[in-house]
Design a protein around this nucleic acid. Sequence first.
DNA 1: ACTCCACTCTACTGCTCGGTACAAAAAATG
DNA 2: CATTTTTTGTACCGAGCAGTAGAGTGGAGT
Lengths: 207, 207
Amino acid sequence: MSTETPTAGRPRAFDENTVLDRAAEVFWRRGYEGASLSALTGAMGINRPSLYATFGSKEELFKRAFARYHDRQVATARAALDRPTAYAAIEAFLRSSADGLTADDHPPGCFSIQGGLASAPENARVSEALATGRAATEGVLRERLTRAAAEGDLPDDVDPRALARFVMVLSEGNAVHAAAGARRADLHAAVDIALRALPTRPGPATA
Amino acid sequence: MSTETPTAGRPRAFDENTVLDRAAEVFWRRGYEGASLSALTGAMGINRPSLYATFGSKEELFKRAFARYHDRQVATARAALDRPTAYAAIEAFLRSSADGLTADDHPPGCFSIQGGLASAPENARVSEALATGRAATEGVLRERLTRAAAEGDLPDDVDPRALARFVMVLSEGNAVHAAAGARRADLHAAVDIALRALPTRPGPATA
DNA sequence: ACTCCACTCTACTGCTCGGTACAAAAAATG
DNA sequence: CATTTTTTGTACCGAGCAGTAGAGTGGAGT
């Protein structure tokens, strides 16, 4: 099994996490259905049998690769949201999102969206897994804003769920633009405008 | 040729636009790469040779199907933008977008995005065609807002291009949510918040 | 009524897909 | 050093892919 640590036998010639990151990049760039096994093994630097012995199937490989991406995504989101006010948290979230969508150490845009928004029915589980991941990120945001509401850091008439959705919409729309090659400054310009929509303002708790 | 009108011979047993719309739905639901010829011909109600005689290739079929969708999209956008003020135009655009993304006479979400954000290199032209379509819609929006700026219907410090991009980001982010099954009310809630961000307000020209 | 010709249909092509069998290779254990 | 255990590499599998050949079909023009 891939999760166990064998005591004997020929040692693996590759690092599991390293090849997962390379696989993620292929899925990200080509989408699940556009990522052929040949492209994957080529980028990962391993052959098919090694891939199948380690990950079981293309779908499992995808899920493992996406899980790594998603965990980092959530960690980044949590870090950004760790700000004293709702306004600062949202701004940090959107700024780090815009930067992440245009970072040059990985493909432009968002794995959760490029991976496969729509797919053949037999691959529906993949699209669903991605949607679940995005929903989880939105959940982190929602928790933070719900806390802000409880702390009086949001006006009483603001629905934290709707606000979290709005922020995610912004981030996802920017992801679509980034996938098409938009420049970082363009994404931040959209964030600039969005921030004016917030029912809270810079500085300590408003009401 | 499909574009000529033959005077003799067996007449075509299907309507070109009808089968194009059915093809569009398959591409929309499954993405370009997830839409197999079997799925396409099945939904279109014609066989492969008819498809190839009429459209030439899968890629050409896709472009024709997308062109129809896109033309309607642009027409709808233009209609929505035909409002006296920038605020009203933007609101109408976003409302009709949210409704279109959740209409029940076609798949949820947006063909331009679900069709194929990312793809294998050999299908890159498809993703590019979709991105070009989205850029065209953004162009229509930008023209309207540029006119608003010229008319004094937007504050002088507002960049119509950035504002158009912001509105498109909203629409595209909502499309991602819609693809994942979001309800219409959720999309409108995001629009509600976005409208507060506008550097213009309901009613005749502000400044 | 006959001819013509575009369209329709079945059956096929070469190719690539995701996935696997099997034997050679290589490190740990005795 | 021989054995064991796991990984690696080559070469392959059936299935499904996009695309096509060619016989059959049926309405329009004469």
